[in-house]
Design a binder for these strands. Structure first.
Lengths: 358, 358
DNA sequence: GACCATTGTTTAACCGTTTACTACGGTTTG
DNA sequence: CAAACCGTAGTAAACGGTTAAACAATGGTC
């Protein structure tokens, strides 16, 4: 079996604050106070202690520190997957802000499995993270909401704070912060952009009922149509998941099934747009000359394919989530509980005015 | 607004193991043992305890648990940036394996700043992570190596384990695991692929100076040339950073500066290849008809542009790093300390046999 | 009916910090 | 001149678990 007996496993055990105190000839409390810098101390004592720390290569034990009441130093973020650019960029923002605040970042992934999401939140609760940031869209049925609301309360009770990042709130009395971005507004703006260019039949790719993100985007699309008095044809809303392959599939199937009945495509995100673009090309249709194409997200690949799209402030989303949560936890102030960050369209070269053939 | 006033901030403090014990009518020790499942217990007691846990919504305090000697539950990973696909994929592997082993994952980012890297390792030491995985290439001068070697020793002393992932080892007596992949072999293979297609003048795009990854890739390139008895022209090795923009720049400048003197391009990674491809196209050169193009990494964008490239087992890299480190920490066995994962070329549609014009 | 092995539980000693209290010289102050 | 104050530093009690060792209950054996 494993021996971790004090005898052999480690010739020396790691240095503790006691060792430092002894080495510097002061008390443990003094060392603690000097290291946390939260107390006046005589310069002489201070330098004695610092020297001891250096000589013994001492680092504090985060567990002990956390136990003894000092607030934990960590921020938790839970995402579907680390390799999705969308989540990665939000995570980057979280990282950045966490680093600024001197915290470190615990990451959990769920693979889009609600059960794993719950389990991960629980883990973060064990870990006493200062806040738990849940990012990304999700199927939001009532059972889910109710259960997550419980978790939010449990976190609050433990002095932590749940943050919903890029997803709608759980309910009126749930102690959770919400940092959203304007999906509907962005979709409205970019649809209007197409409409202003004269497009009337705009294919929407990526409809998925009950997923919050595509749902609010499609709302913006419909509203823009209505505002421009363009009749809404539900047949133009194609259903599919939010990845490149699906974008390819949706357009390919659409083109195979009959004559082209649209002049522009609004892909629910840039990945879908990339796939759609490929399918269009393979069908001999050039973007933007033959078909206009827009996306949503403005992640790096969008620039690569000159895609006009909606910019989502991913990193700012992450940073804001951390900032708000920490202020909340620190001051217990009555700060905003719901923030909506703006989106705006980024015009590149994937839209052309429609040429009226009639 | 929400009231979180200090007075009632916590009407109840979070549940402790003592509360559970009282509620179940057993001792604290019994609860602890039943929860960690590391001790026989009567079914009746067990169910009493579990019920109490459920009723009180108890979760253990990770800090206390970590303090009391049970090994920590976390794995640390340090990367340059979360939004780089390369790192993201390795991180995904780390996440996956960590989840399997029931650990969670602390992530630190360095922004390629060695100083921040050191600081982050130190933080992970405080945090008592079971292992610290350092991923990505780095300028590896002697001073850096020596200092990192010290950190490796400090970690080992504390029962943790440094893992270098995708970078060369620090030195002979440094207690650090190394999980690499075969950069040189991959570069050799794909260069040979081009050579077999008849290409003789192959432009190499990437950085040469002291960064470990491009350095070992260029070595494979040169060796393949030598093996095929093709004269090596240093003028074909173009210098630039490892991103898309630079790939674009390098090719553009090259084409602007004189007649095209190459038939194929070996981009040091897929991003460079994507940029190069765009520059080629803008210059009226089609891939692969006019110019063959290969990359390195095999990340998703490569498939999008039909790029023949070298597959790097990113996720496996991460998984292996965690697996090895944990076995090491557990058994203190004399396992392999240095693993080299294989790479292989993935043939898509970006290479054509050269048409001899002479 | 005393003895023993087995099983299940409790007692108590840590783990390494933080943080009230407290102590103590030396100034001010009333 | 005693009292209040100030800046530092020490003492010791948490913090919430784990775990070795002690202990009680149980049933089987001679």
């Amino acid at each position: 079996m494993v021996r971790r007996a004090a005898s052999d496993s480690e010739g020396r055990r790691p240095t503790t604050i006691r060792d430092v105190a002894a080495h510097a000839g002061v008390s443990v409390a003094t060392v603690s106070r000097i290291l946390s810098g939260t107390y006046p101390s005589a310069p002489a004592t201070r330098s004695k202690v610092m020297r001891a720390v250096r000589e013994l290569d001492y680092v504090a034990n985060a567990n002990a520190r956390g136990l003894a009441g000092a607030s934990s130093r960590s921020v938790a973020i839970i995402v579907n997957s680390v390799i999705s650019p969308h989540y990665a960029h939000v995570a980057q923002g979280v990282q950045t802000q966490a680093a600024i605040e001197g915290k470190l970042c615990i990451v959990g992934t769920t693979g889009s499995d609600p059960e794993r999401e719950f389990a991960t939140v629980q883990l973060m609760r064990e870990e006493h993270a200062e806040c738990v940031i849940l990012v990304g869209n999700v199927v939001a049925d009532d059972a889910y909401r109710a259960r997550m609301a419980e978790y939010a309360r449990a976190l609050a009770l433990a002095g932590s704070q749940l943050v919903l990042c890029g997803r709608p709130e759980l309910g009126p009395d749930v102690p959770a912060l919400v940092v959203e971005y304007d999906n509907t507004g962005g979709a409205h703006a970019i649809t209007s952009h197409l409409l202003s260019a004269g497009h009337r039949r705009i294919l929407f790719l990526g409809r998925r009922d009950s997923y919050t993100t595509p749902e609010s985007r499609i709302l913006g699309y419909r509203k823009a149509l209505a505002d421009h008095h363009v009749p809404h044809d539900p047949g133009l809303e194609v259903e599919g998941r939010m990845d490149r392959r699906e974008g390819y599939r949706m357009v390919r199937e659409r083109l195979a099934s009959g004559p082209r009945d649209f002049t522009a495509v609004f892909a629910c995100n840039d990945l879908i747009a990339a796939g759609a673009r490929q399918a269009l090309r393979e069908h001999g249709l050039r973007v933007p000359d033959d078909v206009s194409l827009v996306g949503f997200d403005d992640l790096p690949p969008a620039a690569d394919i000159d895609l006009t799209t909606v910019h989502v402030p991913h990193e700012e989303l992450g940073r804001t989530a951390v900032r708000m949560a920490l202020e909340r936890v620190r001051d217990k102030s009555d700060m905003a509980e719901h923030v909506m960050l703006g989106t705006h369209i980024v015009i590149r070269d994937s839209v052309r005015p429609v040429i009226r053939t009639d």
